[in-house]
């Protein structure tokens, strides 16, 4: 087990290395003097010179990269160009809101996906199945910002059940916090619900054709027991993979939804920073998103082995 984790970590190193190069290049591929980009409005010669020196722009590119990498390894992502706040602080302040939104969206997607996918698989070819598979294609076809706008129109503007957007911290008012998170979570989680449903369905169909399901029926197990005890645990193993990757992709998924619902999370910070040309913050967010994806990948593999006794890490 330990050797397996170590081997996976070693394999991750070159990928992580390439990721940091990519993030580094984000600024340096941008046409024009990075200093001008980094400076924004204040373009006095002194300021430009200060930036040049700070970034070591007079040095060769790989030296600049190594210096930058050294800072990152020590947890120093630099300072925001617009607010001069440390980037880690800027992201850290926004992270809880994004995590909450992502968690609620994931719960919503699983609440929809697992029952629907199971029913569609058990009643394969039925009207319910066709409806569910149709919904699955539809769910990934509607842009989540459009789902958000439609939800706002019907549930906020017309019925006045939910706020238009915004955020209330949980420790300030738990009820209001939940009221604010529901619509963005539905908008964000619907595509995931569609994908997870398809996975559950196809995985369930495959499992239901296995010999051990026939064994369970030969024991006289009622179909509910066959489906929910004998089949579901097997069927959900592959679903875990895709859910894990979705967790790894939370930041990215939240970008547009957070913008539509003015949700103060990392995704919206990314958009704001891009518009403000606050490249240090953008770099920090891209780095965070990429690494959470890589780590999620690793964790998925480990959880997989824990769920499926057939897999051994040797």
């Amino acid at each position: 087990m330990t050797t397996y984790v170590l081997r996976r970590l070693v394999l991750m190193v070159p990928v992580a290395f390439l990721v940091t190069i990519g993030v580094f290049m984000l600024i340096h591929l941008t046409p024009g003097d990075p200093a001008l980009i980094l400076l924004g409005e204040d373009r006095s010669p002194q300021a430009i010179a200060a930036i040049h020196q700070q970034l070591g722009l007079d040095k060769p590119l790989y030296v600049q990269y190594l210096i930058w990498l050294g800072h990152i390894v020590h947890g120093d992502l630099g300072r925001s160009i617009t607010t001069h706040q440390p980037v880690t602080t800027a992201i850290g302040e926004r992270l809880p809101a994004t995590l909450e939104l992502g968690a609620v969206a994931l719960i919503w997607s699983l609440l929809v996906a697992i029952p629907l996918g199971t029913i569609a698989a058990v009643r394969r070819g039925s009207l319910a199945d066709h409806l569910a598979t149709g919904l699955a294609v539809g769910g990934v076809s509607i842009p989540n910002f459009f789902i958000g706008i439609v939800l706002i129109f019907f549930l906020s503007v017309t019925l006045r059940l939910f706020p238009f957007g915004g955020y209330v911290p949980f420790n300030q008012d738990p009820f209001e916090n939940l009221r604010h998170v529901i619509l963005p979570a539905i908008a964000l989680g619907t595509a995931g619900a569609a994908i997870n449903m398809r996975f559950t369905r196809s995985s369930m169909i495959e499992v239901l054709n296995q010999d051990y399901i026939r064994t369970a029926r030969a024991k006289g197990a009622p179909w509910r027991r066959v489906v929910f005890i004998h089949a579901l645990k097997n069927a959900l193993i592959p679903v875990v993979t895709i859910v894990g990757l979705q967790i790894g992709g939370i930041i990215e998924g939240a970008v547009v939804t957070e913008t539509v619902f003015t949700w103060p999370g990392v995704g919206r910070l990314a958009v704001e920073s891009i518009f403000n040309r606050d490249y240090t913050v953008v770099q920090g967010i891209v780095l965070l998103a990429a690494f959470s994806y890589l780590i999620a990948n690793l964790l998925v593999d480990l959880v997989y082995g824990w769920l499926d006794p057939r897999i051994s890490f040797t």
Binding site: Q210, T215, G220, A221, H230
Partner: peptide
């Protein structure tokens, strides 16, 4: 009915199959 058959299967009639390796549920 299916319910009545479930009562008979596994109590009065049992069945074993060709491939025992795939006939047992891998996760239990």
């Amino acid at each position: 009915s299916e319910d009545e058959m479930e009562e008979i299967r596994g109590t009065e009639m049992a069945m074993i199959f060709q491939d025992p390796m795939t006939s047992l549920n891998p996760v239990y």
